[in-house]
Amino acid sequence: MTTLFSAAVERIDSNAASLRESFGGQRKVSSARPRRDPQWERALLEAEAFVQDIRYGRRPIDHFREAMSTSDFPLLFADSLDRQLYGAYEATVPTWQNYARAATVNDFREVKRFATSGVRGLLSKVGELAEHERRGMDETEYSYAVAKYEAGFALSWENMINDDLNAFMRLPQDLADSARDSEEEFVTRLFCGANGPLTSVYTGGNLLTAALDRDSLQSAITTLMKRTDDNGNPIVVKAVELVVGPGLALQAQEIIDTTEYRTVDPNGNVRIISGNGVAANLRISVNYWIPSVASSSNADTSWWLFANPNGPRPAMEFGRLRGFEAPALYEKIPDMRRIGGGEEPVSFDTEGAEKKIKHVYGGAFVDSRMSIASTGAGA
């Protein structure tokens, strides 16, 4: 009925029709000739009075507004006046520093790292006038090169003007978080593959299939601490890092937080063990990029142990370019100036503003003796 009412008001304002014609040709109701339907008569009288009041200004404007719904104004009510911008997702917390050694390289050429077996070993008893043992040593070479990684964005002048929610103000921070994520993902690929532990690194003695529990973790730590070098000398491991994906984060923390274990021997005697036996010098690192790199079901069951990377020889090394150790943010210099003075922060040709981030890094897996991994497939 809104359309009929609006059309009636227009005809009244233009004096194109009488009140009688405006309301469907019905005769005006009066007390002298009452109609049969009293309800219809009252409604018609109220409508006549309402229209007359509007025509001659006796009705306030807010009464007229109440007669119009939002559907009468599709343009005015097309956009919401209550708008809010949600915050960006929180970037992952980097963990690679806990199990990979950080290094600095001078340029983009391949860098080499050398490891030798040395001549360390037990002394041999030598008889009178007898020759002593003359030892040799083996050497191993590791190499990698850093590469440049970049990303950026461009905004039009119109976008910057329309940004009433400051949605684009956080984009530089997004680039900084991207550099942090890229480091973590790069190091993850040094030890993790599509099926969990990287097959080119974890083979034979440093690859397990045990599920993560207290017994398997204790056994793996013991194995790592019993490592020997090429000459059979023990490798001292004083601290161990347990690396898991988010699928094992709660289970790993539960093992560490447990304060008491109870075991029953074959005779039925209950033995209470205070502590968990594995928490000393052990820390948990939750790497959120493991499920992205490991595409199989092993992503939620695989786990890794790394010796402290600050020891004599790390399991992995991550290098950054000297002078560019931290990611660097750049912006394109604007080349437009308003006549009469005033710089415009956009390009003269496109009226766009551009920013980018640059980071230079690389790395390699160094010594497989300093790590043990498990696919967790033996659950």
Rank of each mutant, 00 (worst) to 15 (best):
R55D: 12
A176E: 10
Y56G: 02
V9D: 00
G245C: 07
E158D: 15
S14V: 10
G121N: 08
V51S: 08
L175E: 07
N276A: 07
D213I: 09
R134N: 12
P345N: 10
H63W: 07
E139Y: 09
E331Y: 07
A373D: 03
L123K: 12
S182A: 13
L155C: 06
T188D: 03
A220L: 03
N15H: 13
L329I: 14
G121H: 10
S6K: 14
L212P: 06
N269S: 11
G245K: 01
S178F: 12
I256C: 04
T263C: 02
S302C: 15
R189N: 11
I357H: 12
A210Q: 06
F191A: 13
V264M: 09
A179G: 02
L212G: 03
L248P: 02
P38F: 12
P246C: 15
R262Y: 05
R35Q: 08
Y361S: 14
L85Q: 11
P314F: 04
E343P: 10
E139H: 10
L190F: 06
T228K: 05
I255Y: 00
T104K: 07
V286P: 03
A194R: 04
D265C: 04
N106E: 13
D107S: 11
D164A: 06
I235N: 08
L19V: 06
S117H: 09
R58Y: 08
A373G: 00
R101V: 05
D215Q: 11
K356C: 07
R120G: 12
S143Y: 01
G196C: 06
Y261P: 04
M370H: 05
I372N: 04
Q26E: 13
F50Y: 13
R189D: 08
R59S: 15
R322G: 14
S80T: 12
M1H: 14
N231W: 12
G363V: 09
P345M: 05
F64G: 03
I221P: 01
D138H: 10
T375C: 01
R180K: 02
P246V: 12
T228S: 03
R189H: 08
G363Y: 07
E260K: 15
T140K: 04
G277E: 08
S31P: 10
A279W: 04
L175S: 09
E141W: 11
F306N: 09
Y144D: 04
R83D: 08
